[in-house]
Design a binder for these strands. Structure first.
Length: 276
DNA sequence: ATATCTGCCTGCTCGC
DNA sequence: TGCGAGCAGGCAGATA
């Protein structure tokens, strides 16, 4: 499932394929995929519009157009994007949910088996991504900022990390990996973390994000890059989906528990419970 | 305000 | 081999 590093990789891959290109039409095969506007307005407003950039905010892909509007795509669990030539089999994929025609006989196709992915075309990006917390790789994501976001929160720190208003882009994989690197038990109440622990956590989040981006993301069943070599960070996962395997630090068996309906992996020795 | 629960979805794995 | 059950999980929206 694409989290921040995967979306960053996809944006990097799509950028040279899309910048300067002009859309000629837009089509929606599964209506719920399109959050807004309606399909007719989408096609009208995208027609003859040129791509300015391909960026990202949290797990949202942002494609600003020369009209001032922005095409926003969230891949959720199983969404995939690719630029394909006319007549490509991708256009006949049973999971095709939306596609955008490009001048020059190519198409930007959005396929999504689970149908959770969403597409917006908006004038004001903030209406969609405005509530997101700080970008973890931005200089504004300081330990003090994270402390402020966790203040008064009684939920488990694992749950808090998955809350996109606390910090943007962290999903189940990187929440587990960051907590392991910071040696913090996932069930600790968010507000109970000491200043030192919050600083370790902030550093760990940035570290796993950077490392994963360097590896072009984590390659799991549901994630494929649109172009080029596949992600390789899965080889560096220390706890996520490593249940029963020895902890790389102390050798204890990695455990799996459920925290607010999410499977959560941790080392019972390195991430001591302390005060819950 | 925060916290929890449900619905959205389909493909895959597992046990029989 | 076939098949149903259970699971995977980001986010919106409803509820407590």
């Amino acid at each position: 499932m694409p989290e921040l590093p995967e979306v960053e990789t996809i944006a990097t891959d799509l950028r040279p394929l899309l910048i300067g290109r002009r859309f000629t039409d837009a089509h929606v095969a599964w209506p719920r995929t399109l959050a807004e506007p309606d399909p007719v307005a989408l096609a009208e407003r995208m027609r003859d519009r040129q791509v300015i950039d391909v960026g990202r905010r949290g797990k949202y892909l942002l494609i600003p157009l020369d009209s001032g509007e922005t095409l926003i795509i969230h891949l959720r669990m199983t969404g995939h994007l690719a630029v394909v030539p006319a007549g490509s089999p991708a256009l006949a994929d049973t999971h095709l949910r939306a596609w955008f025609d490009l001048a020059g006989d190519e198409h930007l196709v959005f396929t999504d088996a689970r149908k959770f992915g969403r597409v917006w075309l908006v004038d004001d990006v903030a209406r969609v991504v405005g509530k997101l917390g700080p970008e973890p790789l931005d200089w504004t994501f300081t330990a003090e900022v994270l402390a402020g976001r966790l203040h008064g929160r009684r939920v488990a720190i694992k749950a808090a990390l998955l809350d996109q208003t606390v910090v943007a882009g962290v999903g189940n994989i990187y929440a587990d990996e960051a907590l392991f690197r910071a040696s913090i038990h996932p069930l600790r109440r968010a507000a109970s973390l000491t200043a030192g622990e919050i600083e370790r956590l902030r550093d760990a989040i940035r570290q796993v994000m950077r490392e994963s981006i360097d590896q072009r993301g984590t390659l799991l069943r549901d994630y494929r890059t649109p172009y080029g070599a596949d992600g390789a960070f899965q080889a560096r996962l220390r706890v996520y989906q490593q249940t029963g395997r020895p902890c790389p630090r102390c050798g204890a068996a990695i455990e799996r528990i459920r925290v607010t309906q999410r499977s959560t992996h941790f080392c019972p020795q390195c991430q001591l419970a302390k005060v819950l």
